[in-house]
Amino acid sequence: MVRPPEPPEDAALRRRKDWLVFLLIFGSIILLGLLAIYEGFLDPTASASSRHWGQTAVSALFTGGISFILGQKTATR
């Protein structure tokens, strides 16, 4: 099925919505990463379980980021 061209106003609105969703998700990941780094490595009063949580979260975010980048590199070949 062939779709008619999208009006420029609708395309601009869609792009703004997509950009907002991207910023919210990316900001949430950055905020979680900063909190995990603080709890896992920088907070001198953190309990052992908080440190473990922070280090595990940093490890998961780092591993996920590297996997995403490598997946994007191999997908374009």
Results as ranks from 00 to 15, higher is better:
36 A>P: 07
47 S>G: 15
10 D>W: 05
62 F>V: 15
12 A>P: 03
38 Y>W: 15
17 K>F: 07
26 F>T: 11
59 S>H: 05
62 F>I: 15
20 L>F: 14
55 Q>H: 08
55 Q>N: 14
23 L>V: 11
34 L>C: 10
59 S>P: 02
6 E>I: 08
59 S>Q: 05
38 Y>G: 13
31 L>A: 15
19 W>K: 06
8 P>E: 02
33 G>N: 09
58 V>R: 04
37 I>L: 14
46 A>R: 02
61 L>E: 07
15 R>N: 01
10 D>R: 14
28 S>D: 09
31 L>C: 09
5 P>Y: 08
33 G>T: 05
22 F>S: 10
26 F>V: 10
60 A>Y: 09
33 G>K: 10
10 D>K: 06
21 V>G: 01
60 A>P: 04
10 D>V: 05
8 P>G: 03
45 T>L: 13
27 G>P: 08
37 I>P: 02
28 S>M: 11
26 F>W: 15
31 L>N: 02
17 K>S: 04
53 W>T: 09
36 A>T: 08
27 G>V: 07
32 L>I: 12
52 H>N: 13
10 D>H: 10
18 D>M: 05
36 A>N: 05
50 S>F: 03
37 I>Y: 13
27 G>F: 02
43 D>W: 01
15 R>V: 03
27 G>I: 06
47 S>P: 09
29 I>W: 08
48 A>E: 14
15 R>K: 15
12 A>G: 01
15 R>D: 06
43 D>I: 00
42 L>N: 08
20 L>K: 13
13 L>V: 00
59 S>G: 15
14 R>W: 00
19 W>C: 08
30 I>C: 13
19 W>P: 00
25 I>Y: 11
32 L>K: 06
61 L>R: 06
59 S>M: 14
20 L>N: 12
32 L>Y: 07
48 A>K: 05
6 E>G: 00
21 V>R: 14
42 L>C: 06
55 Q>M: 13
31 L>G: 09
52 H>S: 15
32 L>E: 04
15 R>T: 01
36 A>M: 03
18 D>E: 12
56 T>K: 07
24 L>A: 15
61 L>A: 03
16 R>W: 06
33 G>C: 07
15 R>I: 00
39 E>F: 10
35 L>Q: 13
5 P>K: 11
35 L>I: 14
15 R>F: 00
29 I>C: 09
38 Y>T: 07
45 T>W: 08
53 W>L: 10
15 R>W: 00
27 G>L: 02
8 P>R: 09
54 G>M: 01
31 L>W: 11
41 F>E: 06
42 L>E: 09
43 D>V: 00
61 L>Q: 02
56 T>C: 05
19 W>G: 01
40 G>F: 00
52 H>T: 13
44 P>L: 03
19 W>S: 12
15 R>E: 01
37 I>H: 05
40 G>D: 04
57 A>L: 13
6 E>Y: 00
30 I>E: 11
6 E>S: 04
60 A>D: 12
29 I>A: 12
33 G>Y: 06
22 F>I: 04
49 S>I: 08
10 D>L: 11
51 R>E: 10
44 P>E: 11
24 L>K: 11
61 L>I: 15
34 L>Y: 05
24 L>M: 12
58 V>A: 10
29 I>D: 03
20 L>G: 01
40 G>T: 03
27 G>H: 06
9 E>V: 04
60 A>H: 07
49 S>K: 10
17 K>C: 05
57 A>G: 00
54 G>K: 03
46 A>C: 09
53 W>E: 02
